[in-house]
Structure formats: C-alpha cells, structure tokens
Design a protein around this nucleic acid. Structure first.
Length: 557
RNA sequence: GCGCUCGUAGCUCAGUUGGAUAGAGCGUCAGGUUGCGGACCUGAAGGCCGGGGGUUCGAGUCCCUUCGAGCGCGCCA
C-alpha cells in the first residue's frame, strides 16, 4: 500500500540524515502516514518531525527540512512534498497514480479492497447465541449485523472465517424447563383443558402458536401423558422449534452460520468433564464446601468461581471452558466472541478459564456491544422475553427491509449506546442513509444503460485516456476509490464494521458531487469514455462496500 | 459500596489509535437543473466535545478528579 511506501521513504531519509550527522542518533521512530481531512494538506501527511523534535532537541520545521533534503528520489507516484504548519510533511501524489486506481479496480473487480495481510490465520466468530426461549429480537439484531459484517471484513483481509452460534440448551437450564412447561400448558389449553401456566412462564404469543402447530400436527396424542414425561418431551419440542425459528429469523436477515454448536453436545461428548479435569491438572481447581472451584483470582479475575456445584452439576462456567477448549482444539488461531455489554463482568471469568486450560487468553477477543435503547412513541421499550414483549427482528425486517435494518445497526460503533427509534426507522425509511448509497449505485447503473442505448462502447479502463480526469470532483472521487483497500483493512483490524457504512456514505457523496458538476455522457467522446470508466470504477467499489455490509446494490430503485 | 462502558450541534451518530479551522444525516431557513434518475446538489444558522485539573510542540482522543446515564457484581445462564 502507498502509505507503507511513503513511510519507508521517510524512515530511510531519517537514517541517511543520521549517518551524515544532520540529525542526532535516536531510536527509530514509528512513521505514521495519515490522510489529512483538509485536501490542501496533501494526499498524505506525516508528523514525524513534530514527534522527533523533542528528543532531537531541534525545531520541528528545521527537522522537517532536513528529512525532506534526505528523502530518496525516484518515487514515481510522488508529485511534490511540502513542509507546512508546525512541521508537517505533506505529500502530494501525481494524478496519474490516482487515475491508475481505475485500472486496479477493473483488474480486481469484486476482490478490489481485499488483501492477504492475514492469510493463514483462522478465526472463529461466535455471535448472537441467544437462549432458545424466544425469537431473535431487535436487540440481537445488532450483534447479528456486527458479527456477520466483521466476518466479511476479516475474510477480506485474508482470514479464514467461521461463524458460529452457541445454543444454550444444557440439561440444567431452568429457563428451558420453564419454556417446556409453558408449552405443555398451552398445548393442553388448546385441547380445552383448564391448566394453569407455570409460575415463571413465557408469556409470548409464539408459545401458543407453537402449541397450535402441535395440535394440528399430532392432535391430542399427548393429552394423557403424565407431567413427568410430558415436560421433558415438550421441552425438547420447544427447544428444537425455537432453534429452527431463530435460524430462519437470522437467515432472513442475511446471516448464515457455519456451525450451530449445542451446549448439550459438550456434555454428551464428555468435553465438560474433560475440561474440568484439565483445569485440575493445571492446578487451577480446588475443592471447598463440597464444590469444585476455578481459581480465577490467580488468573486476573477478582474472585473464584464454582465449576461443579455441591450437588454434582456443572455450572455454565465449566461448559464455557469446555466450549472454548473445543474451539481452540479445532485449530482456530483467533476466537472472537460478540456479547452484549451486560455480560462484561463475565469476560475476566472466561479469560481465566481459558488460561487455566493452558491456552493464551489473548487469543480470545471479546467484543462488547452496548445495549440498544429502544424507543417507541417517545417511550422507552423494555423488552423481556419472559413477559413476551420483546420486539422480534422479523417484525423490523418486514417493516423496513433487511438493507435498511442492517445499515442502521451498523451506523454506530459497537461501544456506543445506540438509541433506536422504531417509529422513526419505520416511518422515514427514505431517510435512512442506505438509500442514499444505493441511489448512487442505481444512478450509475442508469447512466451506463443510457450509454449502451447511445451505442457508446465501453472501453477497458486501461484503454481510455485517464489523463483527462483532472476535474477536482473527478480527483475527489478517484481519491475516495483509491482509499477503499486501506479503509477495509483499518475496519477489519479495529473490529469496526461501522466504518464501512460511513465510508460508503462518503463515497456516495463524492459521487453525487461529481455527478452534479461533471456530465458523463457529453460531446467529447474521449472524455465521455474516460468518465464512463470512472463511474464504472465507482459502481464496482460501491458494490464491494455494500457487499461487505450484506446490503444489496440495486440497479434501479 | 466496588467494577466496566458511555457523555460531541435541537435529535441520531462519526471523528483515521495524540495532529492542522471538530464533521455527517435528520430537522429549521434560503437557493440550484431547457440535457445522463431531484431518493440529488449549494449555502446559512446551530458547539465551553458534561464540568474541573494534569501530561506536551499539540487533547474530543491519554492520566486524575467530579457530575450524570447505562450495565455488571450467584453453587442463575
């Protein structure tokens, strides 16, 4: 990437200057190249003279001059370098280089923006993993969008990515027990029996609907089954049905998993017992009050936690330890878990468990996303699964569509408490920036179609006169296109999918600006062809950006 | 009480890991096209970046403190 080449050149200049004695000997500085927000400050700017001024005991501007003097010549794409402000080095690129990005886009097409920086690394992203006690909610939607797009981003920079959903279906789950009993009661009610709901029942409509389905399918087959058999049976029916509903909800949101990992399977395969055994062998387990404890306090957590209760049942901590051991043993070099911020207190516990198992906790990253603050008619909506008043993601998708929903979730960074005004999102769908971006894409498609109708034969970018693209708006557009690969890498490495929505909005904006000031299909044939090549490049990058976001790029709307 | 996260325009959110004059959308006001899609474009108003202190050439960003909001502190998951 061009930043790296420039940084290398600056570093070399500093070294040479030191050899000549023009700059005092100092440890090699890290060179950062940034894109100034003000265009007058060049295409790239370097602040090394400022940061070196202190240790070198030299005025920053003077230092910048020295560096400039020793800068190696023959950097093909560089037009000029200027010293500005307090001592910034501003690099201006030749327009040729910008124009050549069109060639690069055309060559790489859907792969433009991708790299192999992280080739050879295998990452497992686990996200959503909601209890199978209700449909996927709007709140889960944030994690879903986050995890899915992060997966796309990591794949784009070379990672081998697997997406996984962890199903909390353990035998000792009280919640699933309650769900099963609720379903059983609803079922019997359907058959006309006067049966009360269990004390901690799930009040959502979906349980009754499930019951209705069972009646339709199997009639009164379970009417006289005693509770001791009925409850476990309905618990399983309910769990399986919920899981398949959740899968459907997520698929209609465009999120597909490589694996749905059942917690119960970890018990059945003896992995939980094994994990506890491993922790014991490593010396991080002890017995107290008839229970087995994880010595988490010795591994960075504040207190110890029970792995096996005094009644012999394992806790979820034990299961999670087993699960993460299982993940590592499948060969993943990096584990990413996406959790709601309400689980933040659990991070240290999991890391301690991972360390106790003998793995490096740094290889497990937990991304916490803040809760979504749902507002409807000016009032806070507090969803409770138990009370059955959570807002299903499905409902949101039906009302605003997948594209708008995904885009909205990804506008804010994971650690911002986002407010989600349901009325606003539903009523003013046209004001969602996703349409602004999609409109740019559709506009381009329309121009290209018009060009075809005019029998203008599109030429490969390499064959048009790219040097004609010198209008400020054309250069702005080219600059934005050229920046895409860097943007993808930064977004991936910072685990920041939201950067991509903002990039796509900016790209759409520079395109609309260009469109307003520069007519594409005009009288000068060469210019027309060059601009057609330019907008084709823009179309491709918009498509790539939207593709990473899992949002469609329509030809017309 | 202890801990984690957050506080940026009227509202919803960005801010390139410490850079140059803090940005965008919505909303408000005023403008723009004899031609490629007006779901667009231009301009204006709107800010003590919660308050205070510190670190340094330089702070929305890092440290301390204070106020406010959310969340977490089980042999529940």
């Amino acid at each position: 990437m061009i930043q790296e080449e420039l940084a290398g050149a600056v570093l070399e200049a500093i070294k040479r200057a030191q050899e000549e004695g023009a700059i005092p000997e100092l440890p090699a500085p890290t060179i950062t190249m940034e894109m100034p927000r003000n265009k007058e400050h060049g295409d790239y700017a370097c602040n090394v003279a400022l940061s070196l001024a202190g240790p070198a005991k030299t005025a920053p501007r003077k230092l910048a001059e020295t560096i400039l003097q020793f800068l190696p010549g023959g950097i093909g794409f560089l037009e000029r370098v200027e010293i500005a402000g307090a001592g910034f080095l501003n690099f201006y690129l030749k327009p040729d280089w910008l124009q050549d990005t069109l060639f690069e886009i055309e060559e790489n097409q859907g792969r433009f923006g991708c790299s192999q920086v992280h080739a050879g690394e295998k990452v497992l992203i686990e996200f959503v993993s909601a209890n199978p006690t209700g449909p996927i909610s709007v709140v889960n939607g944030r994690a879903a969008a986050l995890g899915d797009v992060l997966g796309n981003l990591l794949a784009a920079v070379g990672y081998q990515v697997a997406r996984e959903y962890y199903i909390n279906d353990a035998l000792n789950s009280h919640q699933l027990e309650m769900l099963g009993e609720t379903l059983a009661a609803r079922y019997l009610q359907q058959l006309g029996k006067d049966v009360p709901l269990p004390p901690e029942s799930y009040k959502g409509e979906y349980v009754s609907e499930m019951a209705k389905k069972i009646v339709e399918r199997e009639g009164n087959a379970y009417e006289n089954v005693p509770d001791s058999e009925l409850f476990p049976l309905f618990r399983k029916l309910a769990t399986d049905e919920m899981i398949s509903q959740q899968r459907g909800d997520l698929e209609s949101f465009g999120v597909c998993y490589d694996n749905w990992q059942r917690e119960s399977a970890l018990y059945e395969d003896g992995e939980v017992t094994q994990a506890i055994e491993t922790i014991r062998r490593q010396g991080y387990a002890y017995e107290k009050d008839d229970a087995i404890w994880l010595k988490a306090s010795a591994l960075g957590d504040k207190e110890d936690w029970v792995l096996v209760r005094s009644n012999g049942r394992e806790t979820y901590v034990a299961a999670d330890a087993a699960y993460h051991k299982n993940k590592f043993d499948r060969g993943f070099t990096l584990l990413i878990n996406i959790w709601g911020a309400d689980h933040h207190g659990y991070v240290a516990r999991l890391k301690a468990a991972i360390a106790a198992l003998g793995y490096d906790p740094a290889r497990c990253e937990v991304i916490l996303h803040q809760m979504i603050h749902l507002v409807r008619e000016g009032e806070s909506v507090v969803g409770s699964k138990r009370e059955g008043n959570v807002i299903p993601l499905r409902e949101l998708i039906t009302e605003v569509g997948r594209d708008a929903a995904r885009f909205t979730f990804l506008l804010s960074s994971a650690d911002a408490t986002a407010t989600f005004d349901l009325d606003l999102v539903k009523q003013q769908t046209n004001e969602n920036p996703v349409y602004y971006v999609q409109y740019a894409h559709a506009r381009i498609a329309s121009i290209l179609k018009k060009a075809a109708d005019n029998e203008l034969v599109l030429k490969a970018a390499a064959k048009v006169k790219r040097s004609l693209l010198t209008h400020p708006r054309e250069l702005d557009l080219l600059r934005k296109l050229a920046d895409f690969p860097n943007e993808v890498q930064v977004a991936a490495e910072n685990r920041a999918p939201h950067r991509l929505t903002h990039y796509s909005i900016e790209l759409a904006s520079v395109f609309h600006n260009f469109y307003t000031e520069c007519r594409v299909i005009g009288e000068e044939v060469e210019l027309t062809l060059a601009r057609l090549a330019l907008i084709r490049g823009a179309e491709q990058v918009l498509k790539n950006a939207l593709g990473l976001l899992g949002v469609s790029a329509p030809e017309s709307m």
